Every structure is written in C-alpha cells, then in structure tokens.
Simulated assay, not measured.
Amino acid sequence: MARAPTDTGRSRRPLLEPWMGWTPSPEQQPSEAPGAVHSPRTASIAMRAASRFILRAYLAGTDGSGGDALTAFVLVALVDANIGHVDADPILSRRYAAFDQVPPDGFKRPTSTRALAARLGLPYETTRRRVERLVGAGLCVRTPAGIHAPHLARAEYRNGSEANFKAVRTLLRDLHAGAPDMDWPALDRFAGPDPLPWRLVSRRASAFGIDFGSRVTELTGGYDETITYLALVEATGAADDAEPRRYVQTLPLARSIQQPTASVRRRLARLEARGLVTRGPAGHTASPAPAAEDRVARLNQESLLLLRDLFGQILRLWPTPQGGGERPVP
C-alpha cells in the first residue's frame, strides 16, 4: 500500500512548485501570510467544505481514474504539471480561460515519473505503476521528452470541465453559508455571460486538490485513507464543529465513497490508530484523540488558507471588467 511521508510540522509548501520550472507571478502569490490563524470553528467549516469538494470530484469519475484514489491524484498532478504553468502569465491565463480556448500543444510541459512522485510524496515505483496504468488507459502518453496528458478538448471532457466549475461554485456557496464572516468572493462572480473560465478554474482547482490532498495524506498516511477520512469529515463534521458530534457506521460510509466495506473498515482502523478518528457504539466520527488534536487543528487552518489562496488566485487571474482586467484576452 502506498504511504505518504508524515511530516505534519513542516511549513506550507509553495503553491507553485520549483520543480515545475517557473516562478510565481503576483497573481499566484498566497492570499494570506503563512502564519495567519482563524477561529477553530471557521477552520473546521473550511475543512468540511474542502472535503466535500474533493469527494465530489473523486466520485464524479470524470478523470478516468476508475475510483482509485491514488490514480486520481497522479492524473491530476500530471495534468497540472503539463499545463498549470499557463497561469503564471496573467495574459495567457485569461486567453486560455474558457473551455473552447484550448492551449496549443506546444504549451504542454512533459513531466517525469520521479517529479510526480516527489510532488505527491509517493515512492517512485508506486507512482510508476499508476502512470503505466494511465498510459494503458490512453489517459496519458510517454514520449522521449516525458509524460503528458492529451488536451481534454473532446465533448466528454467538456461535461467534466463544466461539472468541475459547478463544483467550485458549490464549494464557494458552502463557504458563504458556513463562514459568512470571511470575505469570500461574491457568488455572481461564478455566473453570468459566457464564456465562463472553465479551464482556468479547473487548473487552479487541480492545484488546490493536489496541495490539499497531500497535506491530508501527511496526516492519514495514505491516499486511500485520505478519501476515507474526508468522507468521515464530510459525514460527521470536522474537529471543533459547534454542532453535536455525529457518528456513522462503516457500511454507509463505504457506500458513500463506493468502496468495499472491508477495505474501509481497515482504513478506519488505521486512522483510529493514528488518533484521527474516534470509534463509539454508533460507529466512527472525525473527532481526534487528545494527542492528535493539535495536528488536526493545524490541518484545518491550512485547509482554510488553501481555500483562500484558491479563490484569491481565481479573482486575480479573472478580474471583473470594473477592476480593469480583460475578460477574456483575444
């Protein structure tokens, strides 16, 4: 089973990776200082909303991963490595924001298995097997220059891109409802006349998903455990939720993420051993043991900061006409 290294005390990893070979633009800089701290309840609500968003994307199956958590994260990291650098240039980012505005093939930057493994904190051999699976499924190709995914311009991927955009809009709606004290972007920024920035939002949401998933996996120990943990957070609430603690049994939890009950039971046992979840007579809940409370609280705070970065980047790369931005650049 693939394990991610556990290093919960490290500082926030830069959103734009040095190994991608490019430098953050002002539009890509974090929206808040790394040390920013918000109320535990707000951070907990953000963690739950982010969990729901990741589970929506995972369960939609539009990525072609076939329900395998690790394969899904490898594929998203691959696409992000290939084309995410477009957003380092605000002009290019807006030019290739809408779905029908496909970046030319020459914009793709092939990556390597070793780079993907480093990005996700995975063993090389584990990553290589997942890449070979994706190659066999026609979801990526291997060339002398490296690995890349074809541009997803076909009609079936348009549906996935639209679904992803709507999922981000739903995430924003959840944040408005749960944490209205934060200055989240207005919901109407994600509506209005076409062309909407489906590709831009998908690129930034992919980067968010990788960063969020890798941080959770530092705590859970594996990407399969991460999906189980996120499902439990979504079903029962994250630590520091003001509402009464809920419990969920293994069978309905496994059904909610379309996984075998026995597998989910084993993952819950591993999460309990790490102190991340609590078992009671009515099932499990996402309430940490006292020894893990600080680690979970830090994860919740990091989740909130990542969400702030996500929406801050989208707004800076896709400004309103009143803000002087060009929407879109021809």
Rank of each mutant, 00 (worst) to 15 (best):
A2W: 01
A2T: 09
R3S: 13
S11F: 06
S11G: 09
S11P: 00
L15H: 11
W19P: 00
P24G: 08
S31P: 00
A36G: 02
S39P: 00
P40K: 12
R52C: 05
I54T: 06
A57D: 12
Y58A: 14
G61Q: 12
G64K: 11
G66V: 10
A69L: 04
L70G: 06
A72M: 12
L75C: 01
L78D: 02
D80F: 03
D80N: 13
A81D: 05
N82A: 06
N82C: 07
I83S: 09
D89P: 03
D89C: 12
L92A: 15
Y96A: 04
A98T: 10
F99S: 02
D100I: 01
L116Y: 02
L116S: 03
L116T: 03
R119A: 12
L122R: 06
Y124F: 15
E125N: 08
R128A: 12
V131G: 02
L134K: 06
L139A: 07
V141I: 11
T143A: 08
A155P: 00
G160D: 04
A163H: 12
A163N: 11
F165G: 04
A167C: 09
V168I: 10
V168Y: 03
R169C: 02
R169A: 14
T170D: 12
P185E: 10
A191P: 00
P193K: 15
P193E: 15
P195D: 09
L196D: 01
S202G: 06
A205E: 07
A207C: 10
A207V: 08
D211F: 06
R215D: 15
R215W: 11
Y223W: 08
E225A: 15
E225L: 12
T228I: 06
A231C: 07
A235K: 11
A239T: 01
E243L: 13
P244T: 12
R245W: 01
R245P: 00
R255D: 10
P260N: 10
P260K: 14
T261C: 11
T261G: 06
T261I: 09
V264L: 03
R265D: 04
R265N: 09
R267Q: 12
A269N: 05
A269T: 10
L271H: 02
R274T: 02
G275S: 07
L276S: 01
R279S: 10
P281I: 07
H284A: 08
A286V: 01
A289V: 00
P290W: 08
P290Q: 07
A291P: 00
A292Q: 10
E293Q: 13
D294L: 14
L304D: 03
L304G: 07
D309E: 02
F311M: 05
Q313I: 11
L317M: 08
P321R: 15
G323H: 11
G325T: 09
P328W: 08
P328V: 08
